[in-house]
Each structure stands twice: as structure tokens, then as C-alpha cells.
């Protein structure tokens, strides 16, 4: 039987990460690795893009890299 994924890519999960600290797209992708969510790479990119568009996080550059963050 397939083991249930231990990580879920949801709006609430993304929100919690971005409230905690600013993250790059790569940081976020690391939190939702395909082997942990059970999603394909394409699904991960599409779902994460939809969630970020909806959350519309603040952006700032840290070390020349764009980071997203949310305030409560």
C-alpha cells in the first residue's frame, strides 16, 4: 500500500512558512519536495504558483535574491 505523504502542499502550510521567515522560491520548493508530497514536479510548480498568487506575499531582496514573506 502506498504510504501517505508526510508533507502536504497547501496554502496554510505555505502561509506558515512565509510568516516565520522570508523564503526564496527554492527555499519553498525544498520544503515541499516531491518525494515527500507525492506530487510531480509539474504539479508542485503549478500548485505553488497558484498559492503564491493567492497569498500575494511581500517581496524583498536579501543577498541579491528575491524572498517572499508575510506578516500576520
Amino acid at each position: 500500500t502506498p504510504s501517505s505523504s508526510d508533507v502536504q502542499l497547501t496554502e496554510e502550510a505555505v502561509r506558515r512558512y512565509l510568516i516565520r521567515k522570508p523564503m526564496t522560491t527554492k527555499d519553498l520548493l525544498k520544503k515541499f519536495q516531491t518525494k515527500r508530497t507525492g506530487l510531480s514536479s509539474e504539479q508542485t510548480v503549478n500548485v505553488l504558483a497558484q498559492i503564491l498568487k493567492k497569498l500575494n506575499p511581500e517581496r524583498k531582496n536579501i543577498n541579491d535574491k528575491m524572498h517572499f514573506y508575510l506578516t500576520e
Binding site: T24, T25, K26, L29, K30, S41, T44, V45, N46, L48, A49, L52, K53, R59
Partner: peptide, 20 residues
Amino acid sequence: SSSEADEMAAALEAELNDFM
């Protein structure tokens, strides 16, 4: 692999660029 992560990050940023 890190190159797959790079590709995914690039794809995600490309999707978001239309929006941002």
C-alpha cells in the same frame, strides 16, 4: 538533485513573473 530543484525554481519564477 539540485539541478532539478533549479529547474523547478526557474519554472516557478517564470509562472510568477506574469503575475508580479
